[in-house]
Design a protein around this nucleic acid. Structure first.
Lengths: 125, 125
DNA sequence: GATTGCTTACGAATACAATCGTATAATATA
DNA sequence: TATATTATACGATTGTATTCGTAAGCAATC
């Protein structure tokens, strides 16, 4: 159903916090937001209310302080944005993106191992 | 100096076309844009004029039909957006992004070889 | 040289994102 | 209970992106 749901940049910031915490109150989210962005509490509140209207999150209203939960699937969002990015920034080349990502910092040994096994699996295909 | 230059989504679409072609006229760009988006010619024109004002592109005005060239470095844009994406969508994990990218389609044999050699280089570090 | 077609320039409308102030209700605390 | 604190609701403003209509210039063609 959610084919055309495209969170804005601020919404993505909030979603990423919710994905980390699984669910959270406005204040909890705002505390994290504030670390990188100088905005008022009601701004974060309003944003999350709008996200609720859009269906990006759901909320539990049973207590005075509402608890928000992401309803947009993280993996879906990943697919959407990675796909878009490959198109516009890497002329459609997945491996170009991979190269650029790998080049930006040395992954940990366990990360490398994981990636290697992924590649081996792909080679067997 | 161009630290805070953030092309919008439409601007990115146009930039990606310009990066492909190296340089192009408004009509050439618009022809490609139209394939995926139903907008008028003057919309594309205006967008490219704004991009010129912002310094995202330069243009050669010596003939009646102007020729636009991207001035924003593609690699810089890649770094910016890949970094942002790793943060918001992959909790800061580069390898997670790599896994997701690799998983979305089997890269060609030569791509795989390239990625493998990249990994070997990283392992030696 | 009038007509047609393609071009840029530019103002303006529309839409959407982001921000915040204020009112109001609920809860905790003095 | 009165006061302070914390929460939501919501209107309104501001900023920015996107879209397009219309005018005007230039060049090819009738």
């Amino acid at each position: 159903m959610n084919k055309t749901i495209r969170p804005t940049e601020s919404e993505l910031d909030i979603l990423s916090i919710l994905w980390e915490k699984d669910s959270a109150t406005v204040r909890e989210v705002h505390e994290v937001v504030q670390k990188t962005k100088d905005v008022g509490y009601t701004t974060t509140l309003k944003l999350m209310q709008i996200m609720n209207e859009k269906g990006l999150v759901t909320r539990n209203v049973s207590s005075k302080t509402h608890i928000y939960t992401p309803s947009l699937n993280r993996e879906k969002a990943q697919e959407h944005f990675v796909g878009k990015m490959i198109q516009t920034l890497f002329s459609g080349s997945t491996s170009q993106l991979v190269m650029q990502a790998l080049g930006r910092q040395k992954p940990s040994d366990s990360d490398l191992a994981e990636i290697k096994s992924m590649i081996q699996k792909l080679e067997r295909k």
